[in-house]
């Protein structure tokens, strides 16, 4: 389908260009407003945000905070991924576990996680451990549920064939189950990634002395919006990099699908 729009002058506009134009327009409007009507103690124009980058990156405390957040995010995502797969595959592969364990997963998932955030701080302290644990509690469910859904799509005939040819559990998992799960696993990983990020940032905002979430609060309270926006941009870059890693891994893991087509 061709989505290009032809205007009265006969100019063809593609959605991508229009989208870029809107973004540019918004940034320009933000810049202009930042110099005219907006209070510089509350919001800074984009140019000031860009100018703030070298300043905040030169501060060793903030470099440390960025590393801490990145470490928490990676650790939480790693644990959520391993645990999500380790729990999801056995739950999804067998009818018995599916019927008995899945309702429990859904029950726990239905608890609004923010309400138990103070408990995570109570049990894990205000250091990185509580952020990682809270991140895991957010990230694990999308991964687990998608893995369960993916494992259910595995053809029983394929499992039987592999078993009758003498494949061991590990081999069956690597050669039969995993390739089948790739699409739903990776959509789970992407959802889990942004959920983990949400959990880590929430926990950092709630109570900590380090990490990006803590410093955004410091910057806001000291009326330094340029520094705050720059930190948010760092965080966004972090999220984009991790998302890109997941996407690349997905492409590599599903190579056989493309060739099969």
């Amino acid at each position: 389908m061709n989505l290009a729009m032809t205007d009265r002058a006969g100019l063809r506009l593609s959605p991508g260009w229009v989208r870029a134009g809107i973004v540019v327009l918004a940034v320009v409007a933000w810049e202009v407003a930042g110099h005219t009507i907006l209070d510089p103690e509350f919001i800074s124009p984009p140019s000031a945000v860009i100018a703030a980058f070298p300043r905040i990156l030169a501060d060793s405390d903030i470099r440390h905070a960025i590393l801490v957040s990145f470490y928490e995010l990676l650790a939480a995502f790693g644990i959520a991924t391993v645990a999500g797969i380790a729990l999801g595959v056995p739950i999804g592969l067998h009818r018995f576990t599916l019927r008995s364990a899945l309702p429990l997963v859904l029950l726990i998932y239905s608890i609004p996680q923010v309400t138990v955030l103070p408990l995570f701080v109570l049990y894990f302290g205000i250091g990185p451990a509580s952020k990682i644990a809270f991140g895991v509690s957010h990230g694990i469910f999308p991964i687990l549920l998608n893995v369960v859904a993916g494992a259910q799509t595995v053809e029983p005939a394929h499992l039987k064939a592999a078993r009758s040819m003498g494949a061991g559990r590990l081999l069956i998992f690597r050669r039969v189950v995993l390739p089948h799960m790739v699409p739903s696993l990776f959509s789970g990983l992407r959802l889990g990634m942004s959920a983990t990020l949400l959990g880590v940032i929430l926990a950092e905002l709630y109570g900590s002395q380090a990490g990006i979430g803590y410093y955004t609060q410091v910057f806001t309270n000291s009326f330094d919006p340029a520094g705050m926006f720059a930190l948010v941009a760092v965080l966004a870059v972090m999220a984009i990099i991790l998302n890109e890693i997941v996407r690349r891994a997905e492409r590599r893991a599903s190579f056989w699908r493309v060739t099969a087509r």
């Binding site: 989505l3 959605p15 509350f42 929430l202 905002l205 965080l235």
Partner: peptide
């Protein structure tokens, strides 16, 4: 309009992917 959907949907999805909670101090 399909055109405006193609323009705005990725934009809104992209913003939603950033944890808005980071702007809570603002």
């Amino acid at each position: 309009s399909r055109f405006w959907v193609a323009v705005f949907e990725p934009l809104l999805n992209g913003i939603f992917a950033v944890p808005i909670v980071i702007f809570l101090p603002l």
